[in-house]
Nucleic acid binder design. Structure first.
Lengths: 216, 216
DNA sequence: ATTATCTATAGATCTATAGATAATGC
DNA sequence: ATTATCTATAGATCTATAGATAATGC
């Protein structure tokens, strides 16, 4: 048969792309282990043999999905990750937190998927490990300079910078990890979730601001 | 054969208990879906038919493990969950956070396992849903009274109490969810992790304190 | 007679591939 | 000839049960 998928009667888009889209959807929803190649093929509307024809293995199609998603994330976040010497310190930090939070908020299943892989299949992240470690090192050093100057000048509470970053990252990330819990508690109206995310971002910024500038 | 497991050559403890222990170990490590009955039986050193003989289904053995763990948690945490009218407000709150954090810290795989189930098999928590919701409601109302009085008296920053609790819970919980990430970054020395947890608890307390009492 | 255990196996999945077959591009 | 597709199937697991067999408690 080998229908051309541009023919009438077939879904739009070529098969390879449809499989990629279906795979992304399922990996984002279920993580690596629980998203099966059979379900991906079903969702794409093809036999599962097609998945192996185009992508060879489950691991390879996952790595393509992961690559796309991590590149999107890195592209969005990189510009604000290096703190410069000039400029208002709090505005710089706030800008970084905002971009990070906003990206996770516009890709709400990214953090849960990455968490799933980090927990259950960390070896799949091997090729990104180094790059991400390097990036986080750049973030750290550039901010350390800025923050230490602020602390030394007595304008900011003295704080362990590693702990500060840990607080910022976990507060942002866990907001999205806990969406399943929220779904069970709040109304199902999607706008409720949007409002919650806005309030959450404000609260995180206020919390970090007072951690750094609030006088005890 | 039906060896009595008190005979020489057999592992100590009765079979049922050995299966329970193995199941707890695997569920804590891998969550519900990825812990298989075959692996549980292997670890317990019995054939997997035994698992069904004693517990009938995978779901039932999991529910027993869950019950034990949730009861332990609730027993530890309940005493400090109701804020009283008298007493220092910050000390009360600090006490609650400390007990909560310390319990998770002495049961480091509990939060990850619960998160896994909440994400992938929320229906397994159905029978606990109501009780937990009720408890969290009691926590909330008792604290709302205390905190509002403090805010109205101008002794505490005005704050959305829902957001405050969300910050406290996610900061504590995510500390333990992210242990796999830490393992990849820090040294493998278990004492490093102990020290990190201590520092983390202090940082969370400082952060929440300044959120509530720090002057902008 | 009851309890505990083992072997064997059913029936669902999963990932992956082999091999046949049809459409497309020369 | 190459590319795309389908059918069929191998080989691993998984959960769960049936049925035989041995040990224990009367």
């Amino acid at each position: 048969m080998a229908k051309r998928n541009t023919e009438p009667g077939t879904v739009q888009g070529n098969t390879e792309q449809r499989i990629m889209d279906a795979a992304e959807e399922l990996f984002l929803d279920r993580g690596y282990m629980l998203a099966t190649t059979v379900k991906i093929a079903e969702r794409a509307g093809v036999t599962h043999a097609m998945l192996h024809y185009y992508f060879r293995t489950k691991e390879q199609i996952f790595l393509k999905v992961l690559d796309k998603n991590l590149n999107g994330f890195i592209g969005a976040v990189r510009p604000v990750m290096t703190a410069t010497a000039n400029g208002n310190v709090w505005e710089t930090l706030k800008g970084g937190i905002t971009v990070f939070f906003d990206y996770l908020n516009s890709h709400r299943r990214l953090a849960p998927m990455l968490y799933d892989v980090l927990r259950n299949n960390p070896e799949l992240l091997r090729s990104y490990r180094e790059g991400l470690a390097e990036m986080s090192e750049r973030v750290r050093t550039s901010h350390v300079t800025m923050l230490l100057k602020e602390m030394d000048g007595g304008r900011m509470n003295r704080t362990d910078i590693g702990q500060l970053f840990y607080s910022i990252l976990t507060m942002c990330i866990s907001t999205f990890l806990t969406i399943p819990v929220l779904d069970g508690m709040q109304g199902k109206d999607p706008e409720d979730l949007d409002r919650f995310m806005d309030a959450r971002k404000t609260e995180i910024l206020d919390t970090i601001y007072l951690r750094l500038y609030g006088k005890a």
